[in-house]
Simulated scan of single mutants.
Amino acid sequence: MASRTPSWIRQHLAALRALLVFTVLLGLGYPLLILGIAQLPGLKDKANGSFVHDAKGNVVGSRLIGQSFTDDQGNPIAKYFQSRPSAAGSGYDPTATSASNLGPESTVDTLADPSVKDDTGKQSLLTAVCARSVAIGTLEGVDGARPYCTAGGVGAVLAVFYDQPGYQGNVTRVVSVNEECPAAPFLTNFDGVKVECHTFGDDVSAGKLVAVRGNAPATPAVPADAVTASASGLDPDISPAYARLQANRVAKACGLDPAVVRRLVDDHVHGRAVGFLGEPTVNVLDLNRALEQAAK
């Protein structure tokens, strides 16, 4: 009588057969099937990235993935509407899609170590927002002030030290944590104590962090989407408010009547999905292409 194959070998052979079958079906067959379906007429353009072509057939962008309209030094090109910030790689990189992963509690900058070559430190989310708002305000000729931001564009945050535990008693020392010496702090005094600038290596972790709102308007002139990146870092749209903020600058750079540019913006506003989901948006690439046609 022939000996039977041990059960453990039969089990492993069955598992191997199942692995091979499902590898072929799900690892090869299914992806190829989906790829074939995606290339059907009506689906091909979207599946391939919704690329936008110019009159010569060259790809100039995508309706689904944002892009920067800046020069080689990263400065905004005045004749184009600008996109919102991106934290995806060096900006709008589909292979590195991500957010900054910084939240509301990111208010204290990491100062650069002077002993480390090319160390630039690390901005907190608050300072990044403040700096962007000041820069956009300057570019668009409006007030870039925001609550909890200094006039210089950093987070208005103090480390306040007390003479008793639990942040009790008298204030003994105050440091403006995001203003590196020899900068002059945005406040001269706090609770009767002179405010100091911050130096690298000065540990202020024992102080109570106090964010100072300042006198900026409750609704800043620079919209929120102009100073914050989307969760994916690839958002191709901006708010109508941000587009309208840029209209005068773009009109001047293109030699167009501001009313014409504002009308272009209004014509490119997309309403909420199914009437109530999300917020109205403007696709920056589509708007800039329409602007180029109007400027000819």
Rank of each mutant, 00 (worst) to 15 (best):
T138W: 02
S232M: 11
A226Y: 00
D266M: 01
D203S: 10
P6G: 07
Q11L: 09
T110F: 03
L287C: 11
T172P: 00
V222C: 04
L158N: 09
A151R: 05
L102H: 04
N248G: 08
G169Y: 13
G27I: 13
H198A: 14
P223T: 04
T199F: 00
K208N: 09
G27P: 07
P223E: 06
T5C: 06
S100D: 14
L277H: 01
L291F: 03
M1D: 10
D225T: 14
L256W: 04
D225S: 13
R249S: 03
Y148S: 04
V160N: 05
L28I: 15
D109I: 00
V52S: 02
K208L: 15
G49C: 12
F81S: 08
A88W: 06
K79D: 10
A216E: 10
L33S: 13
A151C: 01
V210I: 15
E180H: 01
V269W: 00
A151V: 06
R63V: 10
V175W: 04
N178L: 06
D93L: 07
L158W: 05
F186L: 01
D203L: 11
G74C: 11
H198I: 02
V282G: 02
L287R: 14
D202E: 14
D54M: 08
A145D: 08
S133H: 07
V212L: 13
S50G: 11
V210P: 05
G207V: 09
L20D: 02
T228F: 00
L277G: 02
P280C: 10
Q82I: 08
L16S: 14
T228E: 09
R17Y: 02
A206D: 15
L234C: 12
I65Y: 01
F200S: 12
D235H: 05
G57R: 13
H268K: 13
D45Q: 07
A206W: 03
V250N: 05
V265G: 01
P85Y: 06
Y162Q: 08
R4W: 04
G141E: 09
C149I: 11
N75I: 01
D235P: 04
P223K: 09
V24A: 13
I37K: 05
L20H: 09
D237N: 15
H12C: 03
A295G: 02
A226T: 08
V210L: 12
A243D: 00
E179F: 04
Q82M: 06
K79P: 00
D93V: 06
T281Y: 01
F69N: 11
P258H: 11
S90A: 15
K252I: 02
G207R: 10
A156E: 05
L26H: 04
T172S: 10
V59W: 05
V175N: 04
F69L: 11
I77P: 00
